[in-house]
């Protein structure tokens, strides 16, 4: 397995109709680090994330995840491979017909042979680690606040001990305090799993939180990577587009 990168893009091009969404991307996402993909709306961030998950296939080029060229995998292999990922969606995407507990137990029931006692132990441990009480575990997603839903989403994403955790605009719609609580939680989760090469990829346009919590930043504009730098170098970038973003 590549020691340096968890995810690599080689000559990645994605075209929808007449629009070039991703324009010849060549870069890697560092293994064991928190990388934020930053950019204005329409920069191609979400399409890039869908390529990592194999939900969208490249028009040209390769996407290599954990040493597998995922655009060469068949449908069933790809489904199997996706168990390497955990994901927190923009609005958590919890299953609304299941309680918080059942949401977190869902992947364990689907993909492991754990018995109900083992599942209970694991689920309650995960929910505790993200600050969800046993009482809140019994509630449906509609009975939880936005911040709590994100926490349960994080616990569900971690249930299968993924190698790569993806966060799609994890704090959108949250107040500033809850935003930082969620980022703290993401960083703590990362640090707890860092020893096994756990990689966190965040899609965001929240520049201030990004600078505080990320190790690396990939800045995209109009389907191209403008900069890919560690956070300290990024802060000093003289690129006018980035300066404009930093000064927001």
């Amino acid at each position: 397995m590549s020691e340096k990168y968890s995810v690599e893009f080689r000559n990645l091009v994605k075209v929808f109709g007449d629009s070039v969404i991703l324009d010849n991307l060549n870069f890697g996402i560092h293994r064991g680090k928190i990388t934020t993909i930053l950019g204005f709306s329409g920069a191609g961030k979400t399409t890039l994330m869908k390529h990592i998950l194999g939900l969208v296939m490249p028009t040209e080029g390769e996407v290599i995840v954990l040493d597998q060229v995922i655009n060469h995998l068949g449908e069933l292999e790809l489904r199997e491979f996706r168990r390497n990922f955990g994901m927190v969606f923009q609005y958590a995407a919890l299953f609304d017909f299941l309680t918080s507990y059942e949401n977190v137990a869902f992947p364990l029931r689907e993909f492991t042979k754990m018995n109900e006692d083992e599942i209970r132990e694991k689920v309650m441990g995960l929910l505790e680690s993200v600050g969800i009480s046993p009482q809140a575990a019994k509630r449906l997603p509609s009975e939880l606040s936005g911040g709590m839903r994100k926490r349960v989403g994080l616990a569900r994403g971690l249930a299968l001990d993924p190698h790569i955790m993806l966060y799609d605009e994890p704090t959108s719609g949250l107040d500033p305090i809850t935003t930082h609580t969620v980022y703290d939680l993401m960083r703590d989760t990362h640090r707890r799993n860092e020893h096994r090469g756990f990689t966190s990829i965040i899609i965001s346009h929240d520049i201030h939180a990004t600078l505080k919590y990320s190790d690396y930043i990939v800045f995209m504009e109009k389907g191209k990577v403008v900069e890919h730098l560690d956070v300290e170098t990024f802060k000093k970038s003289e690129n006018p587009v980035i300066r404009r973003f930093l000064e927001l």
């Binding site: 489904r79 491979f81 996706r82 168990r83 609304d96």
Partner: peptide, 18 residues
């Protein structure tokens, strides 16, 4: 439909469930 617009179907797919 409501699962689709709230990304619950994407969540199933990301987990590897058809």
């Amino acid at each position: 439909g409501s699962m689709k617009v709230t990304e619950q179907i994407d969540a199933l797919e990301v987990m590897g469930i058809n």
